[in-house]
Design a protein around this nucleic acid. Structure first.
Length: 487
RNA sequence: GGCCCGUUGGUCAAGAGGUUAAGACGACGCCCUUUCACGGCGUAAUCAUGGGUUCAAUUCCCGUACGGGUCACCA
């Protein structure tokens, strides 16, 4: 593979959403450019007027930026081969199509849509693949000139050789050869003078000097026709890398109806962006070594085309969560705090808490940021709870032993100075008492946890909770527990 | 249906003509433990299938099955 002067491009259609498979394509495209010191180009393919969506281009910019996939040339920042919005390039294509007509690689076709529908209908009835029947392929020049002069609407079609074969090369799949007879004389220029996607793509990629094309597998079938176009123009064919789809299960692609096919969905679900990128990179690509957690820069280092997979990968939300968790655990306390705080504040508004202890106990328990609000919902207000919470089989605690424990805890808490209310001090005071009483840790600590939280499961145990809530609130909740257990 | 592509545990996957067929997630078990977790240790589980080629095939070749893609004046 030639890796000199690499120029790659990501060419999405502005649909308003960034599909995760699409983002992965962008990621690989970006990585290849960075890896070989090349340029990563963003081109917006907005020629489908029917699908135009307001603000959709911004979604693309926004997603790429959030992911750190900065482009070197693009609609917003310009560059030497603009414009980078396909709809602004529409004037270019007609002359290229006409050039192919002159060189004998394309021809005018005056068939109406109605005729084509009829032809296709008949073909289908006969059980053959619907293709253009090449009705206008050999029209005499005079006839063509006459129809043109009369202003009869036309399209320009590619003149695919009738026999022989076409071979194209894909970095992953190797050489793929198909009989030309199986290739359709596809339309290059539509009746409205606009290019078809297939044609615009080839011309744009060439004009923009694209050397490496990473795209979804659905284009594998049209690659031979692309090759024929490059050859007809005498242009160099770029390196192709076709990547397999991301699947929901063995037989279905990940699609919008799954509700988790878009980048934005995952951010909303509490995933950390670098983890999203990390996971999708791993879906369809395997690194050489054992390492699994990669920053974007590390991916650029480690990436190798040979690690790409030729078969579809099933998206596994469980594994993705695991990767996310790894990322969260890897964050520094400050980084985690900053990211977690908005989620904490959804259910915990109190300012009178030891946020640092809370954050510290939360971090190893947070798989997704969206796990957080539920975990801290006991802090602002202690809800009603049942004395069942005071039963623990393993530590043999019961409401009766708990009542004793809480009374003892209350004394211990009272004995700690207001200014000395830290996790360490609470811990040593409590454990001194435990030792003095000759009881198990849990005998004392489980009831405290229950009384302070009113919950079965909490971030941290009795000591941490007491530290988080502060002396006054802790004592108040212990008192409530004693009251509850005394009845 | 034609053409193209693919198929290693439940999932992502490494691997190579001769291996005990990695690793991760998940599952299960044990340990740790003041809950839930984290962490540690361990167990189960894979080469779609039939023929070749070869001393030897999961790895190379052919067929079959299964799956995907594609067959628009959409991109």
């Amino acid at each position: 593979m030639n890796t000199a002067n690499v120029r790659t491009r990501f060419a999405p259609s502005p649909t308003g959403y960034m599909h995760i498979g699409n983002l992965r394509t962008a990621l690989y495209t970006y990585i290849i450019a960075r890896k070989y010191g090349g340029k990563f180009i963003l081109r917006i393919e907005d020629t489908d007027q029917g699908r135009f969506v307001e603000g959709a281009t911004e979604v693309i910019y926004d997603t790429l930026r959030k992911c750190g996939l900065e482009w070197d040339e693009g609609p917003d920042i310009g560059g030497p081969v603009g414009p980078y919005i396909q709809s602004e390039r529409m004037g270019l294509f007609k002359e290229y199509a006409e050039q192919l007509v002159k060189s004998g690689h394309a021809y005018y076709c005056f068939c109406t849509k109605e005729r084509m529908e009829q032809v296709h209908e008949e073909q289908r009835a006969k059980g053959i693949t619907p293709t253009y029947d090449r009705h206008c392929r050999e029209l005499p020049q005079e006839e063509v000139d006459k129809l043109l002069a009369e202003g009869v609407p036309y399209v320009i079609r590619q003149k695919v050789p009738l026999d022989g074969t076409t071979t194209f090369h894909d970095e992953l799949y190797g050489d793929i050869t198909v009989p030309n007879a199986d290739l359709d004389d596809q339309i290059l220029l539509k009746a409205d003078g606009m290019p078809t996607y297939n044609f615009a793509n080839v011309v744009d990629d060439h004009l923009m000097g694209i050397t490496h094309v990473v795209r979804g597998n659905e284009y594998l079938s049209s690659a031979p026709k692309y090759n024929l176009l490059y050859e007809a123009f005498g242009w160099e064919v770029p390196t192709y890398i076709h990547v397999e789809h991301i699947m929901r299960d063995a037989t279905h692609k990940l699609s919008k109806r799954d509700g988790d096919a878009y980048f934005g969905d995952f951010v909303e679900k509490g995933f950390y962006i670098p983890a999203i990128l990390n996971y999708i990179a791993l879906l369809g690509w395997a690194p050489k070594g054992e390492q699994e957690i990669f920053t974007l820069d590390e991916l650029v280092q480690e990436f190798d085309i040979s690690g790409l997979s030729k078969s579809p990968a099933i998206f596994d939300p469980v594994k993705m969560k695991a990767i996310n968790f790894e990322w969260i655990k890897k964050l520094s306390l400050d980084e985690f705090k900053e990211l977690a705080l908005p989620y904490i504040r959804q259910t915990c508004k109190s300012e009178d808490i030891d946020l640092d202890v809370l954050v510290k106990t939360l971090q190893p328990r947070t798989e997704l940021f969206t796990d957080i609000p539920e975990k801290v919902d006991f802090i602002d207000e202690l809800r009603e709870y049942s004395t069942d919470l005071y039963f623990n089989k393993k530590m043999k605690t019961t409401p009766e032993t708990s009542l004793e424990a809480l009374k003892a805890a209350s004394e211990v808490f009272e004995g700690i100075d207001d200014n000395a209310w830290t996790e360490e001090n609470i811990h040593s005071a409590l454990f001194a008492k435990i030792e003095a009483l000759g009881v198990k840790n849990g005998w004392m600590l489980l009831p405290i946890r229950a009384a302070l939280s009113g919950k079965q499961s909490t971030p941290g145990g009795g000591v941490e909770l007491a530290a988080i809530l502060g002396k006054k609130e802790s004592l108040a909740r212990i008192a409530k527990g004693i009251e509850l257990l005394s009845n």
